[in-house]
Amino acid sequence: MELLVETAYREEVENLTSWCQHNNLHLNVSKTKELIVDYRKQQGEGHAPIAINGTTVERVSSFRFLGVHITDDLTWTLHTTTITKKAPQLFFLRRLRRFKMDSRILCNFYRCTIESILTGCITAWYGSCTDLNRKALQRVVKTAENITRTELPSMEDLYSQRLRKKSLRIIKDPHHPSHKLFCLLPSGRHYRSILTKTNRVRDSFIPQAIRLLNT
């Protein structure tokens, strides 16, 4: 079974390479990375490296995709640490306050320059964050509250709002790949829960969204 899965994976890479060639697209192998997520207790001899057009693809333990730092163990400490380090934007928020800017301007600046960074793709990763990660994120929000002297939505509230909004958008779109995973029970009031055996799956987007909608 393992051999079949790896063979299919390599075939997909070959198909992608062929598609790029036939459509006059240049595939930059030097910027292409391979990341393997493998939770098996016994991983055997490991996977042979992938080669594209005779060039071996670099294998990495983490990479940045659309602003999100993804690691091979699918934990989010690296991502949360990285985005909280961008909190120096708080320096400019303090400067605006010293210039006696209106609180509305301070809040708009916070939402545009800080909150937008903290919540980028939040529905994909926040549910699997550790308590330590969440506390680090919330400290940034708390500091911004002290500067703006305005109550700001917590990270938990922002996550819930966006989780609900995204899941409802999927439910309304029958062509979305995840649409069929939101299945109503015969009562028509609640969605069928997805059976999960690990916390990793339980804390992922679909199970979290279904629990939120059912409550």
Rank of each mutant, 00 (worst) to 15 (best):
R98K: 12
E11Q: 02
C129V: 12
N133C: 15
L96F: 08
L35T: 09
D203F: 00
P153R: 05
L132F: 08
K165Q: 06
D157L: 04
F92H: 15
I52Y: 06
H79K: 07
R164T: 12
L96D: 00
I114E: 00
E34G: 06
T148H: 06
V68H: 06
T123V: 09
A48M: 13
T150Q: 10
R211F: 08
D102Q: 14
F92V: 14
S167H: 08
R97Q: 15
E11R: 09
P207M: 12
F205P: 01
L25K: 11
Q161M: 08
L163Q: 01
V5K: 07
E34Q: 10
P207Q: 11
D131I: 12
I170V: 15
G46E: 15
R149T: 09
S18C: 07
R95L: 09
R111L: 14
R111G: 02
E58K: 12
V141S: 01
I83L: 13
H69A: 14
I206Q: 01
R95G: 08
N108L: 08
N214D: 07
E45H: 15
N15W: 09
D131G: 05
S30I: 10
Y191W: 09
R94I: 03
A136R: 14
K135Q: 13
L118Y: 01
R104W: 15
K180P: 13
V141W: 00
N28M: 04
F99G: 14
K180V: 13
C129E: 01
F65E: 13
K135R: 12
F109T: 05
L137R: 15
S178C: 08
T75H: 15
L132Y: 04
Y9V: 11
L25A: 10
F99I: 13
D73F: 15
A8P: 02
L158C: 04
A144N: 13
V29Q: 05
L93P: 06
A124V: 03
T77F: 00
L96V: 12
E145G: 06
D131T: 14
K100E: 08
S154C: 04
T123Q: 11
I117A: 06
L181Y: 00
V57S: 11
L181A: 02
E14T: 08
S62R: 14
P177S: 09
C112I: 04
F92Q: 15
C20D: 12
K166W: 10
Y110E: 01
L212D: 01
T119P: 00
L74V: 15
Q89I: 02
Q89T: 10
G44Y: 10
S178I: 03
S187P: 04
V68Q: 08
H179M: 09
I147H: 02
K41S: 03
T77G: 01
L195W: 03
L168D: 04
S30W: 03
N146E: 09
T150L: 05
T81K: 04
T143G: 02
C183K: 11
G120T: 14
T150P: 04
E11D: 05
P88I: 06
L168K: 03
L96Q: 06
R98H: 10
H26P: 03
D203N: 01
F92S: 15
V201H: 11
T130Q: 10
Y39A: 10
I50T: 13
E58V: 05
T55Y: 11
T77R: 03
K180F: 09
Q161A: 10
